[in-house]
Design a protein around this nucleic acid. Structure first.
Length: 366
DNA sequence: AACCAGCACAACCGCTGCTAC
DNA sequence: TGTAGCAGCGGTTGTGCTGGT
């Protein structure tokens, strides 16, 4: 037995609001407030609308100080950072952008930002998947696809793009470090990675056995955990990679996360090492090459890369975000400092550790 | 000029969590 | 402790606009 509807759907008006309705609702709320009961509000106002509809109209349109359209680059950055960090929790994201509503941000993300950042690759990935995978249209596919949350996958893709640039030997670029996935999920993830044709992937090191909890520095070398506990001078929480939520989604249910430390936090640390500029170490060489090529890449010099069409398209997101290194920086720095340091993708942790959502509760309490 | 496809935005729907009883 | 009702949230749908053919 389902819940009784909040209003008589036969007697409520639906569709776009007229200026008269807007005026009525606004005048009433300005004078009397919402009274804490949206369901009863339409009757008091004299509107033939569902209470939920009134609430939505007020919050998304009539409320004072609402901004529409014209998202600034800074707002883009915040939205992207937070989406990568906490996913599609639009209300939390909206709370960080004064004057923006969750609906607005959601629409903006779905219609523009997502395309801007994921670009053509995702589309081509989907096409390839459906054309090469015989299960792609089958029943099994639909259930598996559901298991692999689109949101989580998107966040992985977005973060992998950045991580590939920033830390070539990161968790993402090191398949041996990945948790065990459902075969289909693994297929999707690998497909997604191969689709990226990321030239930087060539620096991924062959690595350790799956299942070993590891801490590696940016050279891919194991880190002395004792040194970590004693406070390694170069160690920074800001470099901790945390994928809790995403991995919870994409990891098959019967396989424990190999790198969790018991707190559902990835125990994979990417950290700079003393003397990282010292190129005498053989292990450093690929990285120094990487660093110079990254420099070139970021300056739109593609020497050293086989710049095929797809690969260029792969990084359209950075070009479209003005194509500057700053935009790479904001993505990493914002994410790393605001979110990753919490060691968790859970927004609660972010809230607690950074206080960045301190305004959250104020969101709709106007 | 007409048609069509894609896009942007507003609004709706249904689920979840919270709270009062 | 269980239940009902509400607010809030996120996904989805509907609609109008715009640009291309």
């Amino acid at each position: 037995m389902g819940r009784a509807p909040c209003c008589d759907k036969n007697n409520v008006k639906k569709g776009p609001w007229s200026p008269e309705e807007d005026a009525k609702l606004k005048a009433y709320i300005d004078q009397f407030g919402t009274g804490g009961n949206w369901i009863a509000l339409p009757q008091k106002v004299g509107l033939k609308r569902c209470g939920k509809s009134c609430r939505l109209r007020w919050l998304n349109y009539l409320r004072p100080n609402i901004k529409h359209g014209g998202f600034s680059e800074e707002e883009d950055n915040i939205i992207c950072s937070l989406y990568i960090s906490i996913g599609s929790r639009w209300s939390i994201i909206a709370a960080q952008l004064p004057g923006r509503t969750d609906n607005d941000i959601k629409n903006y993300w779905n219609t523009r930002l997502k395309k801007k950042l994921l670009g053509r690759r995702k589309q081509s990935s989907n096409n390839r998947l459906s054309s090469t995978n015989p299960d792609a249209n089958g029943v099994e596919d639909s259930s598996s696809s559901q298991a692999l949350s689109n949101s989580a996958l998107e966040r992985l893709q977005l973060h992998m793009q950045l991580q590939s640039l920033q830390n070539p030997i990161s968790f993402y670029n090191n398949p041996a470090l990945w948790p065990k996935l459902h075969p289909f999920q693994e297929k999707i993830l690998l497909q997604s990675l191969s689709e990226t044709s990321n030239p930087l992937m060539q620096y991924a090191i062959p690595s350790t056995q799956q299942g070993d909890a590891q801490k590696v520095d940016i050279y891919g070398q194991l880190v002395d955990s004792d040194a970590l506990q004693q406070g390694h001078p170069k160690f920074s929480n800001s470099n901790v990679v945390s994928l809790e939520n995403s991995l919870n989604v994409i990891t098959s249910s019967d396989s424990p996360l190999p790198f969790t430390n018991g707190k559902n936090v990835m125990d994979l640390t990417i950290m700079p090492r003393e003397g990282m500029a010292d190129q005498s170490d053989a292990a450093v060489q690929p990285i120094s090459n990487f660093q110079s090529e990254l420099e070139n890449f970021l300056n739109n010099k593609t020497s050293g890369f086989t710049a095929q069409g797809d690969q260029i398209g792969e990084f359209d997101c950075f070009k479209e975000m003005n194509g500057s290194r700053d935009n790479v920086n904001w993505w990493s720095n914002d994410f790393e400092t605001k979110s990753a340091s919490s060691n968790s993708w859970d927004s609660t942790s972010v809230l607690q550790s950074e206080g960045m959502f301190q305004d959250y509760e104020l969101g709709y309490n106007m």
